[in-house]
């Protein structure tokens, strides 16, 4: 608002006094500023350098830096290094991981959980996205989508707590089942992979829904109509047209949900039990105890990141080839 006002104001000023009196005119005529600008804009090359220097520096030190430092610490034999001891590089932390099932089982479990929960999220949200994109008028689409967005503004911890209240032994679900006469004693939903799955799907559904919705929304309705005219049934229309053309949405949504699911820490701690320890808890354990465990924790984080990236990389390639195979 204020910017608009000032623009129109000094447009008037500009006409009257040729830019002398306005703030911008004064700035442009100020000697120091003029020298500065000549120095900066001396050559396109220098101009670009000044534009690029800070962002590049930021990206290297703030975005890449933490990851590289984590990698470095994972290769040290002890961290922090005692003042009079030389730093030694070692792969010990990495060997430690493969040596004991207490370490690699949680990673294996995390990946299986993340994959299963991602699949569940996809199966749950696809019909929802399909309904929104194909069966709802444009005007209502935004409203119905907005309704779904509201709970997703709420934080991770609050929503995890909401799931705890739903599933507890005296929770709403057990009360409802008892009231319906289906059970006599409460079912212990909490602290199982079921409660964890319900919680994680709850937290990640939006990241699947939005890519699916935008993929489905882009798909022209005429494709389906043409196929229907040519005699294709509803199922084969879906399998031959809708599904292959939304693979991109499926692929990016699944990648996002998978990566997010592997990184959850608070949700498994609160909703899971001893039999569902995920790798995030294993990693965190090394940072709560004495400092000399940091290299192990860092190494485990590096392993998890690389494995997660490899899996999503293979998955995306698979989806791409699937798409090519379907369209040819």
């Amino acid at each position: 608002m204020s910017t608009e006002g000032s623009v129109s104001n000094d447009r008037e000023g500009h006409v009257k006094t040729e830019g002398e009196r306005s703030f911008w005119g004064r700035l442009a005529n100020w000697g120091l500023y003029q020298t500065l600008m000549t120095v900066i804009t001396l050559s396109p090359r220098r101009q670009f350098f000044i534009l690029a220097a800070f962002p590049i520096l930021w990206l290297l030190t703030q975005h890449l830096g933490p990851m590289l430092q984590m990698l470095r610490v994972s290769l040290l034999d002890a961290y922090p290094v005692a003042p009079d001891v030389a730093q030694e590089f070692s792969l010990e932390s990495y060997f430690k991981f493969f040596g004991d099932p207490i370490f690699w089982m949680p990673l294996f479990r995390t990946l299986i959980f993340a994959a299963v929960f991602t699949l569940c999220t996809l199966l749950i949200t696809y019909p929802v996205a399909y309904f929104l994109a194909r069966h709802v008028s444009r005007k209502n689409q935004m409203l119905l989508l907005l309704i779904l967005l509201i709970p997703f503004w709420v934080g991770e911890i609050v929503r995890t707590y909401a799931i705890m209240i739903l599933l507890g032994n005296t929770g709403a679900l057990n009360l409802a089942l008892k009231w319906l006469g289906l059970i006599d004693r409460p079912i212990p939903f909490m602290y199982t992979s079921f409660s964890m799955g319900l919680g994680m799907v709850y937290l990640t559904a939006l990241y699947m829904l939005l890519p699916l919705y935008s993929a489905l929304e882009k798909l022209p309705k005429s494709y389906n109509e043409a196929a229907a005219d040519l005699g294709a049934g509803a199922w084969s229309r879906f399998r031959k047209i809708t599904l292959p053309l939304t693979i991109e949405g499926i692929s990016s949504g699944s990648t996002l949900v998978f990566l997010i699911s592997t990184g959850f820490y608070a949700t498994p701690v609160l909703l899971g039990g001893p039999s569902t320890t995920v790798f995030a808890e294993t990693i965190a354990g090394f940072f709560h105890v004495a400092g000399d465990e940091w290299p192990t924790g860092a190494a485990f984080a590096v392993i998890m990141f690389i494995v997660a990236l490899l899996i999503t990389g293979v998955f995306q390639r698979l989806m791409k080839s699937l798409r090519k195979g379907e369209s040819s």
Binding site: M67, Q69, V73, L259, I260, A280, I283, A284, F305
Partner: peptide, 13 residues
């Protein structure tokens, strides 16, 4: 970067 890894990396950095 998954949440836990990001937090650990920031902590170390």
């Amino acid at each position: 970067v998954p949440g836990i890894i990001s937090a650990i990396a920031f902590r170390i950095y």
